[in-house]
Design a protein around this nucleic acid. Sequence first.
DNA 1: CGCGCTTTTCAAAGCGCTTTGAGTGACAGC
DNA 2: GCTGTCACTCAAAGCGCTTTGAAAAGCGCG
Lengths: 355, 355
Amino acid sequence: MLSSEIQTALTPMNLKTLAEKLNLSQTTVSRALNGYPEVSEATRQRVEEAARRFNYHPNSRAKGLATGRARVIGHVIPSSTQHEMVNPIFGDFVAGASEACAQAGYDMIFSRVADGDEAQAYRALISRGSVDGIILQGPRVNETRIPILNEIGIPFIVHGRASGISQPYGWVDVNNKRSFQRATRFLTDLGHRRIALINGLETMDFAHRRRDGYLSALREAGIDPDPALMRSAEMTEIYGHRETRDMLRMDDPPTAILAASMISAIGVRRAIEEAGLVMGRDVSVITHDDDLSYLRNGGDVPIFTATRSSVRRAGGILAEMLIDRIENPAPEPNRLMLEAELVVGRSTGPAKTGH
Amino acid sequence: MLSSEIQTALTPMNLKTLAEKLNLSQTTVSRALNGYPEVSEATRQRVEEAARRFNYHPNSRAKGLATGRARVIGHVIPSSTQHEMVNPIFGDFVAGASEACAQAGYDMIFSRVADGDEAQAYRALISRGSVDGIILQGPRVNETRIPILNEIGIPFIVHGRASGISQPYGWVDVNNKRSFQRATRFLTDLGHRRIALINGLETMDFAHRRRDGYLSALREAGIDPDPALMRSAEMTEIYGHRETRDMLRMDDPPTAILAASMISAIGVRRAIEEAGLVMGRDVSVITHDDDLSYLRNGGDVPIFTATRSSVRRAGGILAEMLIDRIENPAPEPNRLMLEAELVVGRSTGPAKTGH
DNA sequence: CGCGCTTTTCAAAGCGCTTTGAGTGACAGC
DNA sequence: GCTGTCACTCAAAGCGCTTTGAAAAGCGCG
């Protein structure tokens, strides 16, 4: 009696034992489970029933080895010794992407890489056969990783775009230029002329484009951009607070501020309040809002006037597009431009005429 | 000449071709690369040199199949139809964990799972051989996943603990009870008697323990807990704002508030300011601070008085402990209790005597 | 009954690696 | 000169799956 127990404990539940239990060959069982037409409906039923009953799951490594496909998409996280910051939108992006992946039966793998080693890391990831495709996050202006991935020849898709890169690549991006142009125009229409931009790091492509939008709206309105009103750094709360505080102490302070994220906008608000001013009355604020689930922009009435675009949704779309590309290779990379909506909240108002 | 090019393009760089190029057997090459002593130093040098030159990386699936180890640790993300929220600490946690993983040569895989299907998901993940170990996030009181994982018998470690579970399991946790007890005591020592708790979801174990700490400090101070001052929900900004606003409208409003996260504390601050009050003077606030990289609690002087514990560090420790467990199986699961530090910022002050 | 034809099943090869058990020289000891 | 040891190296089996090429079974037909 003990021997039978040991038997069950030691016998792995793999294709071979399942086939033996069914008195069928591995071939037939495999085909039955993978929906091939060569197997009769009755047999298929029987096999599926047994697979469920014995809790059989094909070993993904063996499957991958045999098929050459891993059913995994990879993210490479640069360890960024320079910028210790973890992107706050990461969680929501991943949530969206993982939803789409789960739908298609894919997993996601995260690989951390020392800065500068990225080329090697990609090569290794692919050459090791760990992933079928890659999502490239946070492209910079003239992003070097794009040529690398193109050269390697693995399916990939970029979250954002990279100015200065001429070769083709697939991407999903928010129309950052247009949305910041609209936001800036919204402020000039309200009569503001001293408009500050508290941007993200301008080596990042998205920030670069936002600045473009900001500048072109100023130009439209006949306003000379003031370098003293343009700040650029990683979008933390502290940063939003510090820059706002400093600018509000200027002789000719801004009457309106554009912030690059909800997080830094919170810092902006804090500085405004510490200065004894009222947001929306004394200083107008518009922020970009990634529609993070833990940081919704207010309930019925948005707190901030904002350019809104769900990064979670973007994650889902990206993953879907990448998987589609993996499964149906096409010569033309596909692209998708998302438009941010401008939601009007309580943080903006007409410029004070006196000023 | 074309044929040779085609040759290089079509020949995969695997152990076999590498061995052929070196005029050695696959065995020797494999051993050389994996540091076995049976191979001469001269040969090893030659092999390593060639591996580098030809950009050879062993196929991880084949390696895993042969060794039975995936060198991957898994996270299962419940898709939580109920709580759509993506935990804002996710990003920092993952950053910490992935650092430790990278160090040890492990990757991390994320699998999204429908709520309730978790048992099946774990079983599948393991039975498919995709992971060597699992990190269990966000344990609830009486967490059902722990018995499941114990029964399956895969190495796992819990981020947090689960009250009500008697069987042994490994964990890393912050001493939530003690830290909230200290925080509450700090407030009672300042003379506060109307202290509100804006807690996380109390089905979550960490929130349950924090409430315990809060209650026992009140008891120490001879204060009867007022159910009207105890709120529990997911820790969003909106939630912190709404509950604070409502409580400040009470006939006998709180003079101090304990918040469960920086995010909800930001909402608390917003509500206080909207009510025309000053944080730290009219209403004291203490929050738990996970030391998120994008949401640091102030520069030199912390904005909030807070119980601080880096979730990024916790992620690193967890991953390390799990990997250690995978590589050196031990009967006793290991545990680690982290103590949060109480940092005193500008959000707390003595209770107004007049009230 | 043997012949094609389709339907259903199978044995075996192969994916890229590790690992076992064996084999080769070289060299010392008897 | 034969055996035992040591230092290297190798061919082949096996991990769990898919897939190819072939064979068996079922069936109607002359």
